[in-house]
Write a protein that binds this DNA or RNA. Structure first.
Length: 422
RNA sequence: CGGGCCGUAGUGUAAUGGUAGCACGAGACGUUUGGGUCGUUUUAGUCCGGGUUCAAAUCCCGGCGGCCCGACCA
């Protein structure tokens, strides 16, 4: 992508009204724009990151056999009355049509997916299966906060699984946990599997928590074994002993990056979602649901991976793999040589299938280009200038040293990252 | 929903109740070219509605909006 062709949303200063780091840096670096509290536009760089996260999620959820669908965000009131959540789900956005009918904007989709699933469930032979979507969700949060970590409109992957019995749900639930752990690893996050309260969904649930000082949840966890609980269900303090292995517990702050529930018959009951088992007996379908806020995942990465110059994206979700920068010279002839050389490198990289952002802007000074480049946080920067001659300067965003290399070095590097994560 | 802070050019900031100023950006000309060059010049603003006052960005009331704390949070 030629940088001269992309509208430049990068700002020289942090926005004054933001305190959370993800909001400050994502706005300043031109990844998102805030329309109102908790509602954001995803700009060219930001949408690339979000799409990459969505695709990683998609790949791992596909890998456990679930099928992707897309359900409507606009929901009829009746479905929400059926479960009682029209009145009990306080964050439900309600809208009124011109003929005074009421609708909901979907905050989660049990009310839609359950009657949908009924159309394909008749016998035990039709089970189990999983349906999921990646879609914009709406929640009328009493207080949107922390940039894109808690919005009123956000991107979420929601998966629903359908089973003949609880042991089958159990199996699926374990597969989902493994899929989730793969997702976090691929996007560069360490996430703890934490026991939590189930809220209105079920008695207990599991959350995935990325440890961060700016998280809004308190987590009590053990470094030795895998014990971890949300403080909402455990009042232990730092230093108390782990109930499982006896090692001292640690109290930390976490950002919830995923939440999974064993719904059992909670939603099949109100919709009478049933099937015939082997004996011809009618039974309620057992369900599980599994959510990841993918836009929140993007904010979490921003919240954790940065330095004083800006963002540092992991390769897997970076808007581009390589930031190629051509620096202008004062001699017109020399200048043409530099930009021609950079353009050749750009085309070669494109041919290799590398995602490269080429800063071909002639009017920007070197300092300005470097500052913007650090802010945007693409993993590798290549510089072509009068100084580099026929060679190229290669620098990783998370390292301070740079080296002067030939194109063959870059070729090798690029094939390396392809095998690694993509 | 309770509490706190706040709202001035596109951005970031000044202005005891008394001329709305500065920097960046943007436009023009020149200059510079490896860490947000420099100079000249042009451009653009007090969230909205009331009130007090000779005079309001500033004080008062109401609204709208933003951030933070709490409550809440599939």
């Amino acid at each position: 992508m030629l940088q001269s062709q992309i509208p430049n949303f990068v700002r020289k200063e942090f926005p004054k009204d933001e305190e959370s780091y993800n909001a400050k840096v994502l706005i300043r670096a031109g990844f998102v724009d805030k329309l109102m509290a908790g509602v954001y536009s995803y700009l060219p760089f930001g949408l690339r990151v979000l799409n990459k996260i969505n695709n990683i999620v998609r790949e791992e959820i596909n890998a456990i056999g679930a099928q992707e669908i897309l359900m409507p965000a606009l929901n009829p009131k009746e479905n929400w009355q059926q479960t009682g959540r029209w009145s009990t789900f306080e964050a439900l956005f309600k809208i009124i049509s011109r003929d005074k009918k009421e609708f909901a904007l979907g905050p989660t989709h049990e009310e839609i997916v359950v009657p949908l699933a009924q159309k394909a469930i008749f016998s035990y032979k039709d089970l189990p299966f999983g349906l999921y979507q990646i879609q914009t969700k709406f929640r009328d949060e009493p207080r949107a906060k922390s940039g894109i970590l808690r919005g009123r409109e956000f991107m979420m992957k929601d998966l629903y699984s359908f089973h003949a019995d609880e042991s089958d749900l159990e199996k699926y639930y374990s597969k989902a946990i493994i899929a989730y752990q793969k997702i976090y690893k691929r996007v560069g996050l360490d996430a703890l599997l934490v026991e939590a309260s189930g809220g209105t969904f079920s008695k207990y649930s599991h959350e995935f928590q990325a440890l961060s000082e700016n998280g809004e949840d308190s987590i009590i966890y053990c470094k030795k074994c895998h014990f971890a609980q949300n403080s909402e269900i455990n009042s232990s303090k730092s230093g108390d002993l782990c109930p499982k292995c006896g090692a001292p517990l640690i109290l930390g702050k976490g950002i919830e990056v995923g939440n999974i529930f064993k719904l059992n018959t909670k939603y099949s009951e109100p919709f009478k979602l049933k099937f015939r088992d082997k004996d011809g007996e009618e039974k309620l379908v057992i369900m599980g649901c599994y959510g990841i806020g993918t836009s929140r995942l993007m904010g979490t990465i921003a919240e954790i991976s940065y330095d004083d110059r800006g963002l540092i994206w992991p390769n897997s979700v970076a808007p581009f793999q390589i930031h190629l920068i051509a620096l202008s010279s004062n001699e017109e002839k020399e200048n043409k040589k530099i930009f021609d050389r950079a353009l050749k490198i750009y085309s070669k990289l494109l041919k290799m299938g590398v995602e490269v952002l080429f800063d071909d802007r002639k009017e920007k000074s070197a300092g300005e280009k470097f500052a913007e480049s650090d802010l945007i946080g693409i993993p590798v920067r290549l510089i072509v200038s009068q100084k580099t001659g026929s060679k190229i300067e290669f620098k990783k965003r998370n390292e301070s040293k740079s080296e002067i290399v030939d194109f063959s070095f870059i070729k090798k590097y690029c094939s390396g990252i392809k095998n690694e994560v993509i």
